[in-house]
């Protein structure tokens, strides 16, 4: 009877067991009013962000491999084409093994669908853009370093390096003010509302919602135009459909504060 209970618990919470992964949803981040590069609407310039928890480290290949072994429908050889493109986990040595060198590195080549399913299996979700942006606005010492030119340039330096060459281990970069790591200088990250940040890139939709894509349009819609680091995040996310994968796109999970733990 006890054994059966344990099994049940494991089945329900395969990733929640303490110690399953480092860099989990350890720290609550206090929300509040936040000036985003993407205001909620032309009239509302300041986003209201409720408090949330965020993985302090990116999800690693080893983390994701455990998930895939449990949820075989997310193996690269079994996943539905609708949910993942041909690049999905293509860099792994097999459908369930990333290979000896990749385990600690952040997982990339995952679709939004797969990332969402992973977080859901942990009882969590992907962070929303405003949550991610709020957490990523912090330097090591202050919660909002976005007006610090030196900090900005440091972030931009990553964009000035090509995507070739290996990634550092997940959680290897220094913690920021909130105790969160890897937000800059490692990979792009999926967010829950990636699909609604800019409407689809269907070429027929040449009207207002699509303005962000053309010359000069940034001048209309985006705030903090000098915040290139964030503009590029948005450009990257808006170029990706939910089934796409990229060798520089990873993710982490989030929850509402009080949702669990």
């Amino acid at each position: 009877m006890i054994r059966a209970c344990t099994l049940l618990a494991l089945a329900l919470l395969p990733f929640n067991a303490p110690g399953a992964r480092a860099g989990g949803l350890d720290v609550p981040i206090t929300g509040g009013r936040f000036e985003s590069v993407l205001p909620p609407s032309p009239q509302v310039k300041v986003a209201a962000v409720p408090s949330f928890r965020l993985d302090t480290a990116l999800v690693s290949n080893a983390d994701f491999a455990r998930f895939v072994r449990k949820h075989a429908e997310w193996r690269r050889d079994r996943v539905a084409g609708l949910f993942a493109d041909e690049g999905y986990l293509r860099h792994w040595t097999s459908a369930t093994e990333p290979g000896p060198d990749l385990g600690r590195q952040p997982v990339t080549q995952v679709s939004w669908f797969a990332a969402s399913a992973y977080c859901e299996a942990r009882g969590a979700r992907l962070p929303r853009w405003h949550e991610w942006e709020l957490a990523a606005a912090a330097s090591a010492t202050v919660p909002d370093a976005r007006n610090d030119p030196a900090w900005r340039q440091q972030i931009l330096d990553w964009y000035s390096k090509s995507a070739r060459g290996g990634l550092p281990a997940a959680g290897a970069s220094p913690a920021n003010y909130f105790g969160v790591r890897d937000l800059h200088g490692v990979v792009w990250e999926w967010v829950e509302d990636a699909g609604s940040m800019l409407v689809s890139d269907d070429s027929r939709e040449q009207g207002d919602p699509n303005r962000n894509r053309f010359c000069g349009s940034g001048a209309i819609d985006l705030e903090q135009k000098e915040n290139y680091a964030m503009l590029m995040r948005i450009a990257m996310l808006s170029s990706m459909k939910a089934s796409y994968s990229s060798n520089s796109m990873g993710f982490r999970c989030a929850t509402d504060v009080g949702a669990r733990r």
């Binding site: 493109d85 070429s203 894509r213 053309f214 170029s239 796409y244 060798n247």
Partner: peptide, 11 residues
């Protein structure tokens, strides 16, 4: 052609 050619890496 900008919107029509907006392309993610590997696409």
């Amino acid at each position: 052609g900008a919107a029509s050619s907006f392309t993610a890496p590997g696409h």
